[in-house]
Design a protein around this nucleic acid. Structure first.
Lengths: 190, 190
DNA sequence: TCGTAATTTCAGTAATTACTGAAATGACAG
DNA sequence: CTGTCATTTCAGTAATTACTGAAATTACGA
């Protein structure tokens, strides 16, 4: 590996993190490298930087493209492919969320739905279905929220994050006032 | 594998999903099995249900315990260990989030901080640091939000989800009114 | 203190996943 | 077309990860 020390730490860390996800070490490293590079890199440059085979780079880039995490660029008068990552980190986050949803959440939801359609043949199956129902509802609620939020542009999303739980605190206060009013009225009636 | 068909589909799906995370197939299957079982199971029952070795069950349960995803129970007059998952799916989600943060986010943040402390030795390193800074800020913002939200009890959290992006729509409206008021006043002055 | 049942450990092996080099394919200028 | 450079494919191999059975450890009742 042939990189400035500061970049190397980052690349190595991402490699390790990669294997902690489903993604493998090399894919993580290439992504990290592209992320911090000032300009798009071609396959040969990646080979040199990371000390891995040309074919490994090819396969890993294909994987990153499948994840929509990488952009293919062409320079004038150069037939080689160059790769970068999007500049906006929020956009990267969105892409990541979208892809993980597609690969992990959606299939799970559809398996759950299919199972929930079936007729239970025993108490054990009945109980299992009830539990799967709970999981199904949770996931559905989360994805509804996600679908709602994902449309927001970066600055709105940032605002929403900054608010965080403050929103519910506000609602709590409102609830108190409402229920106070209600109990007062009830008292007046009774 | 020796399970009601409906449970088996679920268990198999979780096994596959497990490998798509960092978690392995068996761990995923055991978790799924415990999740849908009406009562706590002991190791032998898991062996019988999934058709895997006793030692594999032991190791996988240890992994699930390390993730805090599984509860150890003891029945009176029985020295065997029995295992379940928590009943509340929201609590499960919280645990999952907490553990993933601990294993994936926190180490990344600390690597980023460490690198950002160092003196760049070139333009390339300077640029890399800037990019890492962006990533650092994004993650920090997300974890601040998370720390804020994770304290909420289940029903409050559900409320927050239900609101979703409606909150920002509200804020947009407020922004418009404020800026309208401001431009009106400006016009009056000019 | 023994004996028994439950659990864990771990070395060896099986299974899976990652990676390489060589060959094939594609893309394009002349 | 032909030659050259770039990329992809893929069979073989390396590396890693998962799993097992046997032995060791633990826990506890008699």
């Amino acid at each position: 590996m042939n990189l400035p020390p500061l970049v190397q730490s980052f690349v190595l860390h991402f490699g390790e993190m990669g294997s902690r996800w489903g993604i493998n070490r090399t894919v993580g490293q290439i992504y990290a490298l592209l992320y911090v590079s000032p300009d798009p890199l071609n396959a040969e440059q990646i080979v040199d930087a990371l000390g891995i085979s040309r074919s490994n780079v090819s396969m890993s880039l294909r994987e990153l493209q499948a994840w929509n995490l990488v952009l293919l660029k062409h320079l004038p008068d150069d037939r080689r492919d160059f790769f970068t990552t999007p500049d906006d980190v929020w956009q990267i986050l969105r892409t990541l969320a979208e892809e993980r949803k597609k690969r992990e959440v959606d299939p799970t939801l559809s398996v759950l739905r299919e199972i929930l359609m079936q007729q239970p043949a025993s108490d054990a199956e009945r109980h299992a279905q009830a539990r799967m129902g709970e999981m199904h509802n949770l996931i559905e609620q989360l994805t509804n929220w996600y679908d709602d939020v994902k449309k927001l542009e970066t600055d709105r999303l940032a605002t929403l994050l900054t608010l965080g739980a403050k929103v519910t605190r506000l609602l709590e206060a409102k609830d108190k006032i409402v229920s106070l009013g209600r109990s007062k009225r009830t008292t007046e009636k009774g």
